[in-house]
């Protein structure tokens, strides 16, 4: 279906956009042909997440002792669960200020990605010509 012919509340498209946004930050906007927006989101979310890991190591992803933080971290991408599987052995335990700052960075990037997912779903629910001035970004 052409862009201008996209119908309102296209449920399959909304689901695809939601899944793509979660798999790769900005992926939903990439599907919606908003490449600039997708690139900004991808770089910002990945950089924030990477800085969090750099500060506190992969030990900040702790599905055993820090479940609420882990839920927020999972919003970055389901691939975070792989890191969670590695760190759940307890080998990467990290304490102190680096752990706090690393957890805050990785969790905030996850929450920001959740915001991007919801906004991308909303963008997918309206016809292309009704948003963004009808032009490719």
């Amino acid at each position: 279906m052409g862009r201008s012919g996209r119908k309102q509340n296209n449920i399959p498209l909304m689901i695809i956009v939601a899944i793509a946004s979660w798999l790769i930050p900005g992926g939903g906007y990439f599907i919606l042909k908003e490449h600039t927006r997708a690139a900004i989101i991808l770089v910002t979310i990945l950089l924030t997440f990477a800085v969090g890991l750099y500060i506190g190591t992969i030990g900040v992803i702790n599905p055993v002792d820090a479940k609420p933080w882990y839920v927020a971290q999972l919003m970055n991408s389901p691939f975070v669960a792989i890191l969670g599987g590695i760190t759940s052995s307890g080998q990467w335990t990290v304490y102190g200020r680096p752990a706090e700052i690393g957890q805050i960075y990785t969790s905030i990037s996850g929450i920001l990605n959740l915001l991007c997912i919801l906004k991308a779903i909303q963008s997918a629910s309206v016809p292309y010509t009704a948003r963004a001035g009808g032009q490719s970004l």
Binding site: T36, I41, I55, I101, I108, L112, C116, L137
Partner: peptide, 25 residues
């Protein structure tokens, strides 16, 4: 001084927020 780590996080939040709210980038 470790509180200065707040600023890159604030920048990330602002960049994402503005990327989502500006209609024509």
């Amino acid at each position: 001084l470790s509180l200065l780590w707040l600023f890159p996080l604030a920048l990330a939040g602002v960049v994402v927020y503005k990327a989502l709210t500006i209609r024509k980038l």
